[in-house]
Amino acid sequence: MSMPFYVSPEQLMKDRADFARKGIARGRSVAVVQYADGIVFVSENPSQALHKVSEIYDRIAFAAVGRYNEFENLRIAGVRLADMRGYAYDRRDVTGRGLANAYAQTLGTIFSSGGEKPYEVEIFVAEVGDRAADDQVYRLTYDGQVADEHDYAVMGGSAEQAATYLKEHWTEGAGLDDSIRLAVVALGQDGNGGRTINAGDLEVAILDRTRSQQRKFKRLTVAQLRRILPDENGGGDGGTEPGPDGPGHPSTDPSGPDDPADPTDTITQQPPLEDPTSGEPEPPIAPPVS
């Protein structure tokens, strides 16, 4: 008779948490910053098609890091839940809190159930209010924990360095342009002086309470970002498309110069941290056996 293989519950949960955390840390960060007229989301995402930041409902937006297919599923579920609630009741009855709750329960159940692999995602659910004091930002982790964030928050990748930078430089009531510049610099913090992020590699969206339409969510185009970001951020040359060897543009051409700061640069000996087109982390190692 063989001995049953025993794993203590503490160890099991720790393994699952480590597994999820590793997956999330491989991705790139998303920063959310409150500014005078709303909430701005900034993430480094070279893909124009696969979004990390999206609209859920009139005043609610969603941002995520981690595995694309998993957070995309959660996003669609959120849109379905919000639209269904708004249709069955009224548009005002769809709240960020309700949505964050549904996500928390879903993530929590999946995390603690033995049968499913935990989701390797972290999510922001943000709702813009009529006044800055009414804005709400919820941060949800892979295990279903909910945290109420204020002023600014960062998740994924080198989140701590970016958060430290924001803590030192964030001011209340800043304008949109200043807030975007601040968030971009914060995302570029890598512990050794920071790197600049190209406007074309950014995904920026806002929840703007001053927008006259019912739907407050809006994406900023690359051209708009080029106007906002200073020249040294690359591509601040008045709207022309910077070539692959333009100023500050990291090269993905294998024959080009090596840029160790750029995780999509494929000519270093290290494997790329994430898929350069989808922004998705490399497939994880097999989940821990329970």
Partner: peptide, 22 residues
């Protein structure tokens, strides 16, 4: 859909039509 956890149907990819989902 009122329950704590999202129904698996919400997480199932497929239709982009709200009427079909309903």
């Amino acid at each position: 859909s009122h329950g704590p956890r999202l129904d698996p149907a919400f997480l199932t990819p497929g239709t982009s039509s709200f009427a079909e989902f309903l």
